[in-house]
Amino acid sequence: MSYIGALYTVALENLTPALLSDWPRTISINTMGFSPKVKRISDEQKAQLVASGRVGAQVFFGRRN
């Protein structure tokens, strides 16, 4: 269910883009070219998305130090 929730969030973000004032407090995560449309993806693709999320969080917290 958390995967479907995450895809739903990506879809909402694409419909309501962040404002310029939102970016300093936003963790950007590369969606690796995957569509926000709910579909089945392989475990390898899920791992790629999780790794992308880790990189996004590291960049975000790295710039705060």
Rank of each mutant, 00 (worst) to 15 (best):
M1T: 09
M1W: 02
S2N: 05
S2P: 04
S2C: 01
Y3I: 09
Y3D: 15
Y3N: 13
I4L: 14
I4M: 10
I4W: 07
G5M: 09
G5I: 00
G5C: 10
A6D: 05
L7R: 12
L7W: 11
L7V: 00
Y8F: 08
Y8T: 08
Y8M: 12
T9Y: 06
T9D: 14
V10F: 03
A11E: 06
A11S: 05
A11M: 04
A11Q: 05
L12I: 06
N14M: 10
N14P: 00
L15G: 03
P17W: 02
P17E: 11
A18K: 14
A18D: 11
L19H: 14
L19W: 09
L19C: 08
L19A: 15
L20E: 15
S21A: 11
D22G: 03
D22K: 01
D22S: 14
W23M: 13
W23C: 06
P24D: 07
R25C: 13
T26G: 06
T26F: 02
I27L: 08
S28R: 06
S28T: 03
S28A: 12
I29E: 01
I29Y: 00
N30E: 11
N30T: 05
N30K: 03
N30R: 06
T31S: 11
T31P: 05
T31Y: 02
G33S: 04
G33C: 01
G33V: 02
G33W: 06
F34A: 03
F34G: 00
S35K: 00
S35F: 03
P36W: 07
P36M: 02
K37M: 05
K37S: 02
K37T: 01
K37H: 03
V38P: 12
K39D: 15
K39G: 13
K39A: 15
K39R: 15
R40P: 01
R40L: 11
I41E: 13
S42Q: 13
E44P: 00
Q45K: 12
K46F: 09
K46R: 15
K46E: 14
K46A: 07
A47S: 11
Q48L: 14
Q48Y: 02
Q48F: 01
L49V: 11
L49H: 09
L49E: 12
S52D: 12
S52Q: 13
G53D: 14
G53A: 15
R54D: 15
R54Y: 11
V55F: 03
V55D: 13
G56H: 01
G56T: 01
G56M: 08
Q58W: 07
V59H: 03
V59W: 01
V59K: 10
F60Q: 11
F61L: 14
G62V: 01
R63G: 04
R63T: 08
R63K: 07
R64C: 06
R64G: 03
R64I: 08
N65K: 09
N65S: 08
N65Q: 08
